[in-house]
Write a protein that binds this DNA or RNA. Structure first.
Lengths: 194, 194
DNA sequence: GGATAAACTAAACAATGATTCACGTGAACA
DNA sequence: TGTTCACGTGAATCATTGTTTAGTTTATCC
């Protein structure tokens, strides 16, 4: 009774999403055309519309999928790390590594801050990430490892700094710096201990 | 002999640049049309081409002007500050304040990383800024105020963190944090002094 | 006033965009 | 084998784009 064609649609859908990520990251939302995406995916223009309502839908699906993945992966990894300093380092290096690996995604995200449909998913993502950091900082303070501070404020700042690290890493790949140094600065600051 | 029309062109050029900044920041480079810019500037479409060769020229002029201004302003302000910690704080708060005041510019900059003509001016800008920070860090180390570290590496990291602060500030105006806290984290880190 | 040139306009141009639709294709089931 | 339908095509549609151009207004100079 179930009717599944051998030319499985799911495969095409995946091919489209992969191709679209590449094209969007190279040209931005407006700069990427459905023709280009279709070409990159090896499918016809009309074919795109079998799987996505329109350009906006394609873009939104792409963003949502990837961000949800990363959020899940983050929680997973941090689950059994107890030391807050180590958790912080791990969080930072995770995000940096993910960004390096999924360069395209970061470019897409960075490029279209104004497109409203992307914004909601992005906000949710950063909110999630912020909460994770906040929890780490809270633990750090109560355990005496971290200096006393407003954990929510500091969490915000760290998230933002991290965002800058990653953006720069992507935009200027030659101006590289290690994620160890990033962690180090955030943990120790730059003032000499007196 | 000098022939200057009362309908002075310079005024129109300024009006266009102001309007273009707004429109570009709202819609991005591709998303902004010459029609929209003309409308916002209260001028005809053809009028734009009296002052700018084309869309790319208009965009490029806009970026270059603003970035050069900020670089100059930065050097000016830091000239007579001796204490490296104070210089660092001042630098950070300057950039944050500038970003808050010229929200549109930051949005424009953040939006089109891929447009090559904008990129060159931007790279130069960040390079300039990096050198300023590097100098501050170097002074801090030799004077014993800062812990010993690779000044060029740390300068890069601080620039990137700052970029993140500013980007976040612009994208999510509600998730505000003080520039005092930013300086604080960079200067002191988060680990407790032992 | 008449001439000149800068400042400006509006319509037109060719190119390109997203989206639609009438039409093929081939695997699965009867 | 023939019917069905998911899958796929690409020319056509229509809006919008950047840019050009022919023509109009307006301030200055003789």
């Amino acid at each position: 009774m179930i009717h599944v064609n051998k030319r499985s649609g799911m495969e095409s859908k995946k091919k489209i999403l992969v191709a679209a990520t590449k094209v969007f990251s190279d040209y931005g939302y407006k700069g990427a055309s459905m023709r280009m995406i279709a070409g990159a995916a090896g499918i016809s223009i009309g074919g795109l519309y079998l799987y996505f309502k329109n350009k906006e839908d394609l873009y939104g699906t792409l963003i949502r999928n990837r961000l949800d993945d990363l959020t899940e992966e983050t929680r997973e990894t941090l689950r059994d790390i107890q030391d807050p300093a180590e958790a912080m380092s791990t969080f930072i290096s995770m995000r940096v590594k993910y960004a390096r690996k999924h360069r395209e995604l970061i470019l897409v995200l960075g490029k279209e801050q104004a497109i409203t449909f992307g914004l909601k998913a992005k906000r949710k993502f950063f909110e999630d990430q912020r909460r994770v950091i906040e929890e780490i900082v809270r633990k750090g303070i109560t355990s005496g490892r971290f200096r006393s501070c407003d954990e929510s404020e500091v969490a915000k700042i760290i998230i933002c700094a991290l965002r800058g690290f990653i953006l720069s890493m992507i935009v200027e790949p030659d101006a590289l710096f290690s994620h160890e140094e990033c962690s180090n600065l955030i943990l120790k600051g730059i003032l000499a201990k007196k």
